[in-house]
């Protein structure tokens, strides 16, 4: 059976939710094995990867060098020699790793995939493009396939037969590279779920005038992450990590709430594939209303408190 390798995305020593989504997806394509770059995972992590269907966790001992695409790709190539398909999460760094891995292995690559299927023995992927106005199906013609999948496009679920994954250490000598990472300054993790992985995103734009209290309150109430438009990050109202858009973070949550965001094409490109879209904007002609399932023309300072109160009332029963 086809071996499907999944590059684990680890944060704080734990595999992220998109990793479990990717392993769930890998089960539909063959036998999943997880590849972990870094220190060996603890038994609880192995158990969770096993629950989602990874038979094996291949560990490549690597520290900061795993941050360098060429070295991460070399490690991954060594750990996935028997794999016909390599899945990873679609992030900027992984797209670089995927490119380097393809050059090492001759594989075909698709990034930003929303789905992967086997059709007549070929890997085919689904993507949404042009600000989610077109669906594209791509066939990978090469013998090996590398696919970077977007978070929130597969529902993670336990495998029927589960057991803790066994750990296999893969020894590989990483190549020397020309680039030197001079310094790494960690970005303080924002509370709650990271933006790209959140099932709900509540974003604020120019209409907030820099006050994110209501946007944050609604996000917390809905168990979601706080996003922002380019306007808001350019103003310095909120850090760049929160920017939703085609040059920031692309999100595909089940629910996207746009507050005081006009919906320029740059922003739509980063959120238009979301499940349900709702929008609040004072301008009835704002383009965001063209793609919103439910829109409210009004001042977010009036509308959001009403919505928050109504949801709280509903929860109290």
């Amino acid at each position: 059976m086809t071996t499907v390798a999944v590059l684990v995305e680890a944060r704080g020593g734990e595999a992220t939710q998109p990793t479990h989504e990717a392993i769930t997806l890998a089960r539909t394509l063959g036998t999943p094995v997880a590849v972990w770059l870094g220190g060996a995972p603890d038994p609880a992590q192995n158990a969770r990867l096993g629950i989602h269907g990874a038979a094996e966790v291949r560990v490549v001992p690597a520290a900061d060098e795993a941050r360098q695409p060429a070295r991460a790709a070399a490690a991954l190539a060594a750990a996935t020699q028997d794999a016909d398909i390599v899945l990873m999460i679609s992030t900027f760094v992984n797209k670089e790793i995927a490119t380097r891995l393809a050059l090492l292995t001759g594989a075909g690559v698709v990034v930003d995939a929303a789905g992967v299927e086997l059709v007549d023995g070929h890997v085919e992927t689904l993507q949404t493009v042009f600000a989610a106005t077109w669906d594209v199906r791509t066939r990978i013609a090469a013998d090996k396939a590398i696919v970077a999948v977007r978070p929130n496009t597969t529902l993670a679920s336990p495998a029927e037969e589960t057991g803790a994954a066994t750990t296999v250490v893969v020894d590989v000598e990483l190549p020397e590279v020309a680039e030197t990472i001079v310094s790494v300054e960690p970005v303080p993790a924002s509370e709650g779920v990271p933006l790209a992985e959140a099932p709900v995103v509540v974003s604020g734009g120019r209409g907030t005038n820099g006050d994110y209290a209501l946007v944050s309150e609604l996000a917390e109430l809905l168990g979601g992450a706080v996003g922002a438009s380019r306007d808001a990050t350019d103003e310095g109202w909120i850090s760049h990590e929160h920017m939703v858009g085609q040059t920031g973070t692309t999100v595909t949550p089940a629910l996207y709430v746009a507050c005081g965001i006009s919906g320029a094409v740059h922003h739509r490109g980063g959120m238009q594939a979301s499940g349900t879209i709702v929008a609040v904007n004072i301008d009835p002609d704002a383009p965001i209303f063209e793609i919103a399932d439910f829109g409210v023309v009004g001042d977010l300072n009036d509308v959001l408190p009403q919505a928050i109160a109504r949801i709280e009332e509903h929860r109290r029963g």
Binding site: V278, F294, V296, R310
Partner: peptide
Amino acid sequence: RENRVTVTDTGEGGVALADFL
């Protein structure tokens, strides 16, 4: 997207949004 709805807030817009969700 089908069945899109847009309402204008006259004091109940947020309530309608919450009810939709």
